[in-house]
Amino acid sequence: MSPEFLYFIETVINGLMSGVMYSLVALGFVLIFKASGIFNFAQGVMALFAALTLVGLQTGQVPFAHLINAIFGTEIHHFGWELPAAVAIAGTLVVMVAFAWIFEKLVLKHLVNQEPIILFMATIGLAYFLEGFGDLMWGSDVKTLNVGIPSGGSFWWEDVTKTWAAEGSDYFGMYIDVLDVYAAVIAVILVIALTAFSQYTRTGRALRAVADDHQAAQSVGISLRSIWVIVWSIAGFVALVAGIMWGSKSGVQFSLSLIALKALPVLILGGFTSIPGAIIGGLIIGVGEKLAELYIGPLVGGAIENWFAYVVALVFLLFRPQGLFGEKIIERV
């Protein structure tokens, strides 16, 4: 094969891998929208908060250390111990469940049966609150996240693909980031687990009932408030997974919340209510933007992948407003 063709394949593969990373963020949006009709503006910040909490617990950081020191004149920063990644992840999950419970108790409970725009506004408030709260709790310095997932180009894949090039060509193999491969495997496991949960468990069926019709679900005894706590807890778990994968790439810092911007075109394309849609949408966006950046970018000055993703999404929107896998909404008037 010619090196040019192999570069093309390399771009497509890496685009798919990037798409998986976008899908991890988009999944959180889908879960909450599906179950409650809320577009959760705070999903990106939840990923940031989960990653901050994970690093904080792992490294034994004292939460609210700045505040405590400022009030009491102390000089405490660390507990002096470090937790294994698995324990810190479990601890973070507990924090995210507690966060879901508190948010339901303090905010959502009071907004039952309100217009979706009101609930959306509440999530905007939540995003800004959580960002400030995370800052106060864990500090705003850039943190290194290491849960043992390897990263970097795969030597094995490079060696395998090197032989695919025509003899005599100066080809040095295909690049694939091992971290992205892990992300893809984790995303597959996540989707299978979420699908199994929603299809084969009592709670999952209740979730689907609430998603179909709140009032009908309540009329058969399903507690809307419990369902919301569960959904927000699961979204918190998905946010943690996204936070781990993205945080491993760039360190944990406040711009991590901006990964939500990467999920929006995925949601437009895949639909707000479909878990497979979030995955397929992510893959299409990932491949589309990478091919555009490499092959169209140089012709127009580059840096087009961010907005090109939205162009792809808009084109889909024109033909399928509900997204590739979204449910067509038909209302009787």
Binding site: Y7, E10, T11, N14, M17, S18, M21, Y175, D177, W246, S250, S255, L256, L258, I259, K262, E289, K290, E293, L294, G297, G301, G302, A303, E305, N306, W307
Partner: peptide
């Protein structure tokens, strides 16, 4: 020249080039 759009969280295409 390899421009990177704000915020620069995703740069895979740039580094493939």
């Amino acid at each position: 020249l390899y421009p990177v759009d704000h915020p620069g969280q995703e740069q895979k295409a740039t580094w493939l080039q």
